[in-house]
Amino acid sequence: MNLHAKETWYRRLFAVTAFSTLIFLAGIIVTLFHGAWPLFREVNVIDFLAGRAWYPTHTPPEWGILPLIAGTMTVTAGAMLISVPLGVGSALYLYEIAGKEKHFIKPLIEILAGIPSVVYGFFGMAVAAPFIRNFLDLPVGLCAFTASLILGIMAVPFICSLTEDALRMVPKSFREASLALGASRWQTLVKVIVPAAGSGISTAVILGMSRIIGETMTVLMISGGAAVIPKSIFSPVRPMTSTIAAEMGEAAMGSLHYHALFGIGLVLFLMTLLLNITAEFISRRFRLKLGLTQ
């Protein structure tokens, strides 16, 4: 085999592996549709999405996932309220204020990012929930509020590091120009750097949200598990991810319940896909705006 043919052969081999990622993503999509299909032959999509009752084991069963979507939304909104200010604020701190201590703080934030979600879940269940129940005098500690708190903390390092990347992409010259005009560092940060990094920061926030929506173990352990539309943030909820994780073990293979769980998986997947694509789109425009290409 001559040299040229050998080179071509290597190139093809690498191309095939690269295509495998495409195949895996396609595989996930096909699996979800295939798994959910039998359900949608019996249950109308609208009834599935907007139905207010999720009673998979009753006779007759009810397949409305609105309470589960509401659970996901409640927990996600709460988590965002915690993680966005803390994550963006921490990133701004690292960008503008931190001196030498940065070499110490950044690894710590990375450690926070590396803690497995089951450990967060365990911490929430064993430490945070009892504490919150006593402190706020609630009937149960395992509720949307506790889940939001823990999920929020989990997402901080993720949002923080993406935000910091976005800030670092802003050309230094903007900062110099602003300071040379007599702006304070804070004014420079708020009026020039953050707006310039704005779409990069929104990408970070959207991806953080997608993460929170898809997070499973933490909500499975802490959110309380009640499949009803929550009345307050102190109600127990059952988000979509934890429904799949909790019920898959009990659902008989091939039963409608089993297919309904795939249906939830499909909805979940489409939600995160939409967020990820939006983030991708915004981040491309961000690079263009700053005159960066990649």
């Binding site: 993503l25 898809g214 799949i244 898959m248 795939f262 997947f269 896909l273």
Partner: peptide, 30 residues
């Protein structure tokens, strides 16, 4: 194609872990 591959990698990174579980169960287990 390359753009499509990049896009699929980015999106694969965002797929919830429990969905990977569903995928693994139906493809590898079943």
């Amino acid at each position: 194609w390359v753009n499509l591959i990049r896009l699929s990698i980015n999106n694969l990174a965002g797929v919830p872990s429990v969905v990977f579980g569903l995928f693994g169960m139906s493809v590898f287990v079943k």
